[in-house]
């Protein structure tokens, strides 16, 4: 049994909902067309295909494209030792999809982190609070339109943030430069 077979089984079960599996460097990815059914697909992957371990959930900000959000679920089976990656898309207007905490309890903190950093909400999550930033912080800092230095904010009597002085940064190291001057951290705009 390998990951490709398991992906095919998932596809056979859900039909058009699951895309044709793509394989890149031995890693198998399928796209789930409807984010509303992600919990259902995950439940089947766990109960019937033995993906009993949720490694991680990550989110991608495709800033400027539609749909804006991509969510990536990294699944692993301790029994058959196969990895499977599920991707699904959520539009910016919606920014919401069902939780998978009912399938794997470990999804609790992964989903809280995505909510904190990207502002994507998980419907049915038992405790959807911020996990890294303080409660009441008004922004979602890993969005592409959020500056690295941060934005000033203040919640009276609770907490505040200030923009960090970047002094012309961020300072980027370029590996493979001709000399040390070219390699060392310098102010570099993303274009140059």
């Amino acid at each position: 049994m390998n990951a490709l077979d398991l992906a095919k089984q998932l596809q056979a079960r859900f039909g058009n909902l699951i895309s044709e599996p793509t394989e890149f460097r031995g890693e198998v990815t399928v796209t789930v067309a409807d984010a509303e059914r992600i919990a259902e697909v995950c439940d089947a992957a766990k109960r019937d295909l033995g993906f009993d371990f949720l490694l991680d959930i990550t989110s991608i900000d495709n800033y400027g494209d539609d749909p804006r959000w991509t969510l990536v679920y990294h699944l692993y089976g301790l029994g058959h030792r196969c990895h499977l990656r599920l991707k699904t898309h959520v539009s910016e207007e919606k920014s919401e999809l069902p939780t998978v905490t009912g399938v794997w309890r470990t999804a609790d903190w992964h989903e809280r982190e995505i909510y904190d950093m990207m502002g994507i909400r998980f419907r049915g999550h038992p405790d959807l609070r911020r996990i890294l930033m303080w409660e009441g912080y008004p922004y979602f800092p890993l969005r592409k339109d959020f500056p690295l230095a941060g934005k000033p904010s203040e919640v009276p009597e609770v907490a505040f943030t200030e923009a960090a002085p970047l002094e012309g940064g961020p300072f980027v190291t370029l590996p493979g430069g001709r000399d040390a001057i070219e390699r060392e951290p310098r102010v570099r705009t993303p274009e140059t």
Partner: peptide
């Protein structure tokens, strides 16, 4: 001073 963490998440000096 916040040190090398010039970032949205780090207080830039505990004296604030």
């Amino acid at each position: 001073t916040g040190g090398m963490y010039r970032s949205y998440a780090v207080l830039q000096g505990v004296d604030k």
